[in-house]
Design a binder for these strands. Structure first.
Lengths: 343, 343
DNA sequence: GGCAATAATGAGAACGTGCGCAATCCCGCG
DNA sequence: CGCGGGATTGCGCACGTTCTCATTATTGCC
């Protein structure tokens, strides 16, 4: 920086001002400095900057080390949004989302003087870890507890489950079964709630949810049960991979999808359109979640305080071929929330 | 640090020595210092350290911003390996792998004083970008050009394609068709080469490869062609999602898998076992690639020079239900490389 | 017990930047 | 022409470490 200053015939302080877009720099001076910067190929030293300001231009992300589609997409989307705001992203993955792991990862990020932290914490047992986080660093929780009073951005699980369920009810199905995600995940809970709400609102019977995890294997096991139950005509699974497992189980049992049983998934993984049959599913807006999270972080940085806002991002339904009219013998007449049932 | 020094009754310099495991510190002193550190909850400032040493304890990863299974798994695996060595990982994703994007991302990482850079650059047009990279920072290329003289770690694409092809030939198929990845990807090229090698070694006809990208949609299109060609009995697809698309196309055309046509994929995505039918596929060792990359980086840091080593990590075949004996009318007797053909 | 060698410690200067404050410059107005 | 005030610029310090070099404590050996 000293070299640049010398070449431009100014002090290092003026160079610093040019770099930080300070208002009080004469246009002529600014140009001279910028020319010197370009000529010398000067690049500011982030470490020095972080040292003196106590804050770097980096966001830390804490996520469970998994290649689950949701978290991976979220991470990629957030990285993209951050890059646009000229922030970089540092990742600290944790093997499990318990208190110790999370606070350890957060601690590591604070040691790096990050400008803010994103915790992708979709499980209940991450709650008390987040409670204990020091309040002096901007923080956003993604897919965390929707009832907490912390800055939170989340896919609207409930709304997603509602539109999925409604789509099936609208097709004339008497009720909708549900293969749920693992216990303790807010995603699971929200999707169960939306599904149950919708069923109750429509006056439909609420069958017991089949509890699974997020894997196709669990979906397969659930599917083997569903296939044996003659009165099942519609299933909403908590994600697409579960749906894939269910599809295979039904296939093996000779139950046709969608002729005998209709299915709706959640996530819209890129391959969902090529399952057999192509899967109707709910598409969360990961990019929207990422953008909102970033803005919330930026706002906290600017204001210096933590913002207890909750943002839920609405997902959309992607209709493909895995939903059909209910078989005639089970069909019911229904109208759901203003949407007249077809046929 | 000064506080710690005062509390322990030593100079700040001694505290620094304790932190860096310098040999010349008396045991008694070390314990006193450590006690002081614990009592004060002191944590070293990474920015200051980076400033004076010119190097941080962070690795930078450059990857294309995608949720492709391969890159995402690689990233997760590398992050895990790095965390174990107490390094953190910073991600700079690029929208496309052209020269400008890559060198920009690398530049950003260098600005952050990273200890080393990992470039996940599976395409030919990334080559000259990597050529131009400054040699003063440890670098490893993952899935880059296998013919370049740079530190490189890669999944052994050729070997993977060979075992996939061999598996099909061993089942008695006269030849094996191939749905390839996009042009310009080393993954595609390596898989084509392994497939062709194996076919030629076995004296089988080499049909023209069907060129696609990595999506299920492209696989579906390829599958529609394959389904129409009566003499196709075995297909090796460049990844699992392509295989999924092919499976659906074949299903729609009434071609049974594996009875009429056998299929082998590549990647072993978690759901592959639940495709219809469960997919036989090649599983790359992402964790192995990540570990090797990390070691290569660490070695370069230690030695201070760049190491031009190439490491290829062997994948394994995961046999499931998508491969069957060739239909009798097309079957050939064959023995491939010492493996007696069954039946 | 004394001397040399070695181990252990300390003092002070960097590293490259931003901040507060003082100094200077420029402009317009009376 | 002089003066006030805002715009611009410069000076020196501080951030928290590690590095080099000098100094002091300890040990082994005769």
């Amino acid at each position: 920086m000293t070299d640049v200053a010398r070449l431009a015939g100014v002090s290092h302080q003026t160079v610093s001002r040019v770099l930080n877009d300070h208002p009080n720099v004469r246009e002529r001076t600014r140009l001279r400095v910028q020319a010197a910067i370009a000529e010398l190929g000067y690049r500011p030293n982030h470490a020095a900057r972080a040292l003196v300001t106590g804050r770097s231009r980096t966001f830390g992300v804490v996520a469970q080390n998994s290649t689950l589609y949701g978290p991976a997409s979220l991470l990629a989307a957030f990285e993209e949004a951050a890059a646009e705001a000229r922030f970089s992203v540092s990742v600290a993955s944790v093997s499990s989302l318990d208190r110790q792991s999370i606070s350890g990862a957060v601690q590591r990020h604070r040691d790096q003087q990050v400008a803010g932290i994103v915790v992708i914490a979709p499980v209940t047992w991450a709650n008390d870890a987040i409670d204990q986080l020091p309040p002096d660093v901007p923080l956003v929780t993604i897919d965390g507890d929707p009832n907490r009073n912390e800055p939170l951005v989340t896919v609207d699980q409930v709304a997603g489950a509602r539109i999925a369920t409604q789509c099936l009810l609208d097709a004339g199905h008497r009720t909708v079964w549900h293969v749920s995600g693992p216990d303790g995940w807010f995603d699971s809970a929200g999707r169960i709630q939306g599904w149950r709400d919708m069923l109750e609102a429509a006056g439909a019977e609420v069958p017991p949810p089949l509890s699974a995890d997020w894997t196709a294997a669990a979906g397969y096991r659930a599917g083997q049960m569903l296939a044996r139950m003659a009165d099942v005509t519609a299933v909403f699974t908590a994600n697409d991979h579960l749906a894939l497992g269910v599809l295979r189980a039904l296939h093996e049992h000779g139950r046709k999808v969608p002729d005998d049983i209709s299915i709706v998934g959640f996530d819209d993984v890129p391959e969902a359109g090529f399952y057999i049959p192509p899967l109707t599913t709910v598409r969360p807006d990961f990019a929207g979640v990422a953008r909102t999270s970033l803005q919330l972080l930026l706002a906290q940085i600017e204001e210096g305080g933590r913002r207890s806002e909750r943002h839920t991002i609405a997902p959309t339904l992607v209709e493909r071929d895995s939903v059909a009219r209910a078989p005639a013998r089970t069909r019911v007449k229904r109208r759901a929330e203003g949407t007249p049932a077809a046929g």
